[in-house]
Computed example of a mutant assay.
Amino acid sequence: MSAELVSLFTATFVTFFVLIDALGVAPIFATLTAQGDAAYRRRMAFKSTFVATIIMFAFAFGGSWLLGAMHISIDAFRAAGGVLLFLIALDMVFEKRTERREHRAEEVLGGHKPDTELDDVSVFPIGIPMIAGPGSIATAMFYMSGATDWTEKAVVLSAIGLNLLLTLIIFLAAGPLVRLMGASVAGAMTRILGVILAALSVQLLIDGIKGAFGLG
């Protein structure tokens, strides 16, 4: 694999690792599935990651067509994606994103009784928007639109797929992992990942502006 492909894989993997934030979602997943048995938690883990994979890959493959149909340039999409990712990064640094996830979890769990049938939380809110959220969907479209050939597209898809596989593994180990990490460690990691995402988003915005105005 050439240095360019390694760089592309690394950038894509890090971006989606930060965006999906599986370690940050794990406590929410554990809360939503706490009232079920081990089989229920495994089913929700597999189904939620499967749903997120379908959504993200669909937008990854259909993104170029969608941009072309709407007459949106890659540079404009890159700049807009940078702004969107920066807003997400701010939410992560100031823990607004975690608060919204916990609020969704409370809404889903609200009124739930132990003796009632367990809800299927795999599609909403876990699959969408906790894993496949607006930021990760838009970023999948961006990276696939910027890939010049099928080799680069395969690298992008493999980086996304590896992140989704890691998400599945983390969900399967969510209970012990949450107890091991604790709330303070999970919060600190979310803030650190938010700072990294902020730097990536600013770089995307700069590249988009330079490309749009021919400054590069």
Rank of each mutant, 00 (worst) to 15 (best):
S2E: 12
I28Q: 05
H112Y: 04
R42K: 13
K113D: 13
K210R: 13
L85N: 01
V155E: 02
L5E: 04
A58Q: 12
E95Y: 03
A174R: 01
M70P: 07
L177R: 09
V178A: 10
L19G: 02
N163P: 07
A34T: 10
R97K: 12
L118R: 10
V51A: 14
L165A: 13
S73G: 10
I72V: 09
L180I: 14
A11T: 09
T31G: 15
G62Y: 07
L87H: 04
G110C: 05
A140F: 02
A69N: 10
L118A: 11
T33G: 06
G182Y: 01
T53N: 08
A3C: 13
V155D: 01
G127N: 08
R97M: 15
V185L: 15
T148I: 09
G62C: 14
V51R: 05
G62W: 07
L109T: 03
L204P: 00
V185P: 09
L172P: 12
D115K: 14
G68D: 12
S184L: 07
G81D: 10
L166N: 09
F213T: 15
L90M: 15
S184C: 06
V18H: 02
Y143I: 10
I74C: 08
G36E: 05
F171E: 04
L215G: 14
I196W: 01
I131S: 04
L8A: 05
G111E: 11
T139K: 06
R100I: 10
P129R: 01
T116A: 15
A154D: 05
F46G: 11
L67K: 08
V83I: 11
S48E: 03
Q203D: 13
E4N: 14
I196C: 09
L90Y: 03
S2D: 13
S48F: 00
K96E: 13
M130S: 08
I170P: 12
G24P: 03
V121L: 05
D91E: 12
A105P: 05
P125D: 09
K113R: 15
K153A: 15
